[in-house]
Amino acid sequence: MQQQEVADKINVTRQAYTNYEANKREPELKTLIKIADLYMVSLDMIVGRINFQPAV
């Protein structure tokens, strides 16, 4: 998925999303929830509290 597509789906600008990816800006909790929902992962995974373990 392109950055613009993700930004549109989570209702932020492409520049804001780019800054999240580059660790130049931290998203608000509501944005983190939208990202987690979009990728169907937990908030713990999004914030690095657990390692990604793909299903076998």
Rank of each mutant, 00 (worst) to 15 (best):
Y20M: 11
E28P: 10
K9E: 06
N51M: 13
E21K: 13
R14I: 06
I50C: 07
T18M: 10
M1K: 03
E21D: 11
A55K: 14
A16L: 11
Y39F: 15
K9I: 00
D8N: 12
T13R: 04
I33K: 14
Q3F: 09
K30H: 07
V41H: 05
K30I: 02
L32S: 03
Q15E: 15
F52K: 10
V41A: 01
L29E: 08
R14Q: 12
K34G: 01
Q53C: 12
I50D: 00
P54L: 12
Q53T: 15
L43V: 06
Q4M: 12
E5N: 05
A55I: 07
Q4V: 09
V47T: 14
Q3M: 15
A7V: 07
I50M: 01
A16Q: 15
L43M: 12
Q2G: 10
K34R: 11
L32P: 01
I35C: 10
I10F: 06
Y20S: 08
D8S: 12
E5C: 00
E28M: 13
N51T: 06
Y17S: 13
K30P: 02
E28A: 15
R14A: 05
R49C: 08
E28N: 13
D44C: 03
I33H: 04
T31M: 05
A36P: 01
V56L: 07
N11H: 12
V12W: 06
L38P: 05
K30R: 13
G48E: 04
A55D: 09
K34I: 02
V12M: 12
A22W: 01
A55Y: 04
S42K: 04
V56W: 05
I50S: 03
Q2Y: 08
L29V: 10
N51F: 09
R14S: 13
A55C: 03
T31N: 09
Y39A: 02
L32W: 06
R25E: 07
R49H: 08
K30V: 07
E5D: 14
I46Q: 02
I33T: 08
K30G: 04
V12E: 07
A22P: 00
T31H: 05
F52P: 05
Y39L: 10
K34Q: 04
Q2P: 08
G48H: 09
A36D: 00
N19Y: 11
I46W: 04
Q2T: 15
E28H: 09
R49G: 12
I10K: 04
T18R: 14
P54G: 12
Y17A: 10
D37I: 00
K34N: 05
Q3P: 09
V56Q: 14
R25L: 09
R49M: 13
T13W: 09
N19F: 06
V6I: 15
V6S: 06
N23L: 13
T18W: 11
P27R: 12
R25A: 06
A22N: 15
Q4I: 09
N11S: 13
T13F: 05
V56K: 15
Y39C: 03
Q53V: 14
I46K: 08
R25H: 11
M40D: 05
N11T: 08
Y17Q: 14
L29I: 09
Y20R: 13
A7P: 12
V6E: 06
N23P: 00
D8I: 05
G48N: 13
A16M: 14
K24E: 07
